[in-house]
Design a binder for these strands. Structure first.
Length: 920
RNA sequence: AGGCGCGUAGCUCAGUUGGUUAGAGCGCACGACUGAUAAUCGUGAGGUCGGCAGUUCAAAUCUGCCCGUGCCUACCA
């Protein structure tokens, strides 16, 4: 007779094959139907808030794998916090202003043959706004497809009128507290377009420059025997000579004092002149300047040039200022003379070095590329065309020892392809020293919790070493710096009334108002608009996103500031973490976050960065289509995201394998719990020992999960859950309990106890997994309770029941499992020797110590080993000795155990009873 | 070139203050079961702990150098 029908086999609707790409959108639809985000807010109302403030992605282009990582990680954290019972309210945001969008619009213009400069600025900005909106909507859909739960109906963006007004208001705070000032700094300038260019708008191409070796006579020095000697510099930009104010040397370099003995006929050098150049470059300079013979008079260590003052090469022609010699790290002996001429208005290094030593920054260049008229000898000359002429003049005035030409890589404009120059232009800055901004920011970093810890050092040293924040950009798509400058005094107007007017007008019409509404509306009646210059610069977009704490965290009633956590890729140490900290500290004196978590970058499976040219990019869209979001989420949870993380076909396969184990565990639980009812539950005290052990372990894992949430150790949670499912559930507990579940008496305390424990286990497991496998956990949960409104994501992780803790029991079962592993190994051996085939055919004889034997008191050892018979004999040995033989008796047709009581083709006593009661 | 990181089995990760023979799971191989079945169970083989040198009785762990790699800067007179 076939007893299969009488066996209580697992039964469930939960399919083994997930079909996530099809299933997930269905679940998303249900969540939308029941409005789960809103529901969660209502349910968690009044609970402790947990605010992970979203760093806004830039609204252009589709979701890529890095963003997917970022968003999933944020979602996992929010869901775990929510599962702890907190009100984890996530408001996603977008960064909307800035150059990349401006470019796209310009590109569209170029295609249509339109010129950007002929388009009214407000119209141009409108197109940028529409572009940002379009991508925001696309990305919003993509983020939600990943399972991200948040306020997608009302996200924040940096371009709403409220946000623009609020950001302008923040700039107003810096204006009023004195932190914002007008300074100047050399920027990459295109003399063709008459505009500053951003780093990204620059391309490097070969360019032919006129080079000169110019001589600076030593005027005052502590050095001996250098009277009348010349320091020689080399430059590829002769036009910067009028702006020269210093010469840089390196303390580490050895220099030579050289007397020129013989020169070629066409050399510009003079016999008997004493020149000073780096020792390593003497040959090189001599060759380039056609010096045929020379002698080294002495050598000079670099650091001795301190305090030395030189004369400008054109000292006698209107350039009579002192030229200081300054030490600088960036001076090398790779090229030139080992001295670098410093024109603070025409180079980044030059500017900062000059600033450090309080050297004036002269203005020498007009926006159209012409040297200013008042400059002696060179007024009106053009920086790109007249370099040979400048070299001629200097040569005439006996201020060179050589000249030449050099083809080298040089910055050019992306648009016009014209060479660029560094030009000193007025810019707005936020001072790092006013109001102790830097110091306070560093203190706030000390108070911040960093995950991982190394982030603290990184942010700290960046803030510590950064110069003042240059806030202005010469651009169109962004928030204007809302400042008026008094034409007479050059001072910015610092008046709260005016700022308030600007802010309220931005609130009504957005920051376009700056370009549309006449200045008089803001200034009058207190001031006369004619007395003021209206600033046309746009604020650095980092100021926008740096202000999100103000217009998101502070302005929304359902959020709070400071946020519990800011979480971004490690590149944001220089970006959002940085600007948010400075903005908040500068305006409020405190950091906007309590913690910072950084994740690494996504690399390919070999650890190389992804690039189109290598063809190793991984598209999240492909993974969603082929595997589903839960697989991507599992990849995030299973990786150590503090470091860079890898992805590729093999790694995806690895995670789908792990997914199957988790899914099958859920499936087996659901199958085993088929028909489980409240009245089947029994008390803990009535449960078998094995179930008590299981509940102890459930408690242990539960505590561990809770603890690891606090430290954001999700890959550790993942590993622990996976190992628990594999080692303790699937291959141990489930394996042992199959007999009881399939064949046991449904009314027995043993089987009811087992199912009660399985129910508890299922409740825990789905709660642990829900934040990671948000779709699968919901699917399994719904399969169990069948109540759409009652989503798994509304639940919390169960509170540990102290009663279940029994460490002594755990230690006992560790030993039992060890003995079991010895038995299984012997069974395998017996199988290989053809003694038995299946383990139920085995009779196990164990020689073991009394202590070990006592472990099995009141337990059915055969069940634990999944054999039919076990006999013990006590011996004084440490490790049990096991022999395997064939079990005595016949095979029970229902439970397949081999027992003496069973008649051929018959049933064992237990099965006979069960069949009689339940299957007739 | 500089600043901050990283490098442990094919894959994802553990390895406490230096201390036996470097661990886990997956994958792989072999086997079992056919009552979790495109599942489940068992057994097993996989590592010069990126390389070299040093400190030490003892190094995956501490130090130095090198190689590879990632992020951020600087790519210049």
């Amino acid at each position: 007779m076939d007893y299969k029908e009488t066996v209580f086999l697992p039964k469930t609707e939960f399919p083994m094959k997930a079909g996530l790409p099809r299933k997930e959108p269905e679940i998303l639809k249900i969540w939308e139907e029941i409005n789960i985000y809103q529901k969660l807010r209502e349910q968690r109302k009044g609970s402790e808030k947990y605010i992970l403030h979203d760093g806004p992605p830039y609204a252009n282009g589709n979701l890529h794998i890095g963003t997917a990582l970022n968003k999933i990680l944020k979602d996992i954290i929010n869901r775990f916090q929510s599962m702890l019972g907190k009100d984890a309210n996530y408001v996603p945001g977008w960064d909307c202003h800035g150059l990349p969008i401006e470019w796209k619009i310009e590109e569209q213009y170029r295609k249509k043959g339109k010129d950007k400069d002929t388009i009214p600025i407000v119209e141009f900005r409108k197109e940028c706004r529409d572009f940002a909106k379009k991508w925001m909507d696309i990305q919003s859909q993509e983020f939600q497809r990943l399972g991200v739960c948040g306020n997608f109906k009302n996200p924040y963006t940096t371009m709403t009128f409220d946000a623009e007004a609020s950001i302008a208001n923040e700039m107003g705070k810096f204006l009023l507290n004195g932190g914002l000032y007008r300074g100047s700094k050399p920027v990459m300038w295109s003399v063709v377009e008459k505009t500053a260019l951003a780093e990204a708008e620059i391309e490097y191409e070969d360019h032919k420059s006129t080079t000169i070796y110019a001589k600076f006579e030593v005027k005052k020095t502590n050095l001996q025997n250098v009277d009348g000697a010349y320091i020689i510099i080399w430059t590829t930009t002769p036009w910067t000579m009028p702006g020269n104010r210093a010469v840089a040397f390196s303390k580490e370099i050895n220099y030579s004092l050289v007397r020129i003995k013989k020169i070629a006929d066409d050399s510009l050098a003079k016999n008997n002149d004493l020149i000073i150049i780096a020792k390593d470059l003497v040959e090189d300079v001599a060759k380039n300047c056609k010096i045929l013979e020379w002698e080294e008079v002495s050598s000079i260590l670099g650091h001795k040039f301190d305090e030395t003052i030189l004369s400008h090469p054109l000292n006698n022609y209107g350039y009579s200022h002192d030229v200081k010699m300054l030490p600088a790290d960036f001076v090398t002996v790779e090229q030139g003379t080992g001295f670098v001429h410093i024109a603070p208005g025409h180079g980044e290094d030059d500017y900062f070095l000059g600033k450090k030593f309080n050297i004036e920054v002269p203005e020498t260049l007009a926006g159209n590329g012409k040297l200013l008229d008042h400059l002696p000898l060179f007024g009106g000359m053009h920086v790109l065309r007249d370099n040979p002429k400048i070299a001629d003049i200097m040569s005439e005035k006996n201020s060179l020892i050589g000249r030449g030409e050099l083809i080298h890589s040089y910055p050019h404009s992306w648009r016009s392809k014209a060479p660029l120059v560094f030009r000193n232009t007025p810019q707005w800055f936020i001072s790092m020293t006013t109001n102790n901004l830097k110091e306070t920011a560093l203190n706030e970093i000390e108070k911040t919790q960093f995950y991982p810890e190394a982030g603290k050092q990184r942010l700290y040293s960046m803030i510590e070493n950064r110069p003042d924040w240059c806030l202005s950009r010469q651009r169109a798509w962004g928030i204007p710096i809302p400042v008026f400058v008094n034409k007479k005094t050059g001072e910015p107007l610092r008046d709260k009334i005016v700022i308030d007017r600007i802010v309220s007008s931005f609130k009504k019409g957005g920051s376009d108002a700056w370009f549309e509404i006449p200045a008089s509306n803001y200034l009058e009646p207190e001031y006369d608009a004619n007395d003021f210059e209206q600033i046309q610069d746009i604020a650095d977009v980092w100021f926008d996103s740096g202000s999100t704490h103000a217009f998101v965290l502070e302005d929304r009633d359902d959020l709070k500031s400071p946020a519990n956590l800011y979480l971004e890729g490690s590149d944001q140490h220089r970006g959002w973490f940085h600007s948010s900290l400075l903005e908040s500290v500068g305006s409020r004196g405190v950091a906007p976050f309590e913690g910072i978590l950084t994740h690494g970058f996504v690399l390919d499976d070999k650890g190389r960065k992804m690039s189109k040219s290598l063809g190793n990019t991984v598209n999240p869209q492909d993974i969603l289509r082929d595997y589903g979001a839960d697989i991507l989420r599992l990849w995030v949870a299973g990786s150590d995201y503090y470091e860079d993380l890898r992805i590729g076909p093999e790694i995806i396969k690895h995670h789908t394998d792990h997914y199957r184990r988790l899914r099958n565990t859920l499936r087996y639980l659901l199958g085993s719990l088929n028909g489980f009812q409240e009245n089947e539950k029994i008390d803990y005290s009535d449960m078998p020992q094995l179930e008590k052990w299981l509940l102890h372990r459930v408690n242990e894992v539960n505590n561990s999960v809770r603890e690891k949430i606090e430290g954001y150790n999700f890959h550790s949670i993942y590993t622990e859950i996976h190992n628990f499912c594999t080692i303790e559930l699937s291959s141990f507990y489930f394996e042992i309990r199959k007999d009881l579940l399939y064949c046991g008496d449904p009314n027995s305390l043993e089987r009811r106890g087992c199912r009660t424990a399985l129910d508890i286990l299922f409740n825990h497991l789905t709660a642990w997994l829900a934040p990671i496998l948000c779709f699968t956990a919901e699917e399994a949960w719904q399969c169990y309770i069948n109540d759409k409104e009652n989503s798994i994501h509304l639940k919390t992780i169960p509170i540990a029941v102290n009663n279940w803790n029994d460490e002594a029991l755990n230690i006992k079962w560790k030993r039992i499992r060890f003995i079991r592993s010895l038995v299984l190994a012997e069974i395998e051996e017996a199988r290989n020797n053809n003694v038995i085939k299946s383990s139920l055919q085995a009779k196990v004889e164990i020689k073991l110590s009394k202590e070990d034997k006592d472990l099995f008191e009141n337990l059915i050892a055969a069940d634990i080993f999944i054999t039919s018979e076990v006999s013990f004999s006590i011996e004084k040995i440490e490790t049990p000795k096991i022999t395997i033989e064939n079990a005595d008796g016949n095979k029970c047709s229902r439970c397949w155990k081999i027992l003496p009581e069973v008649k051929p083709d018959g049933l064992c006593n237990r099965c006979e009873d069960v069949v009689k009661i339940y299957c007739s």
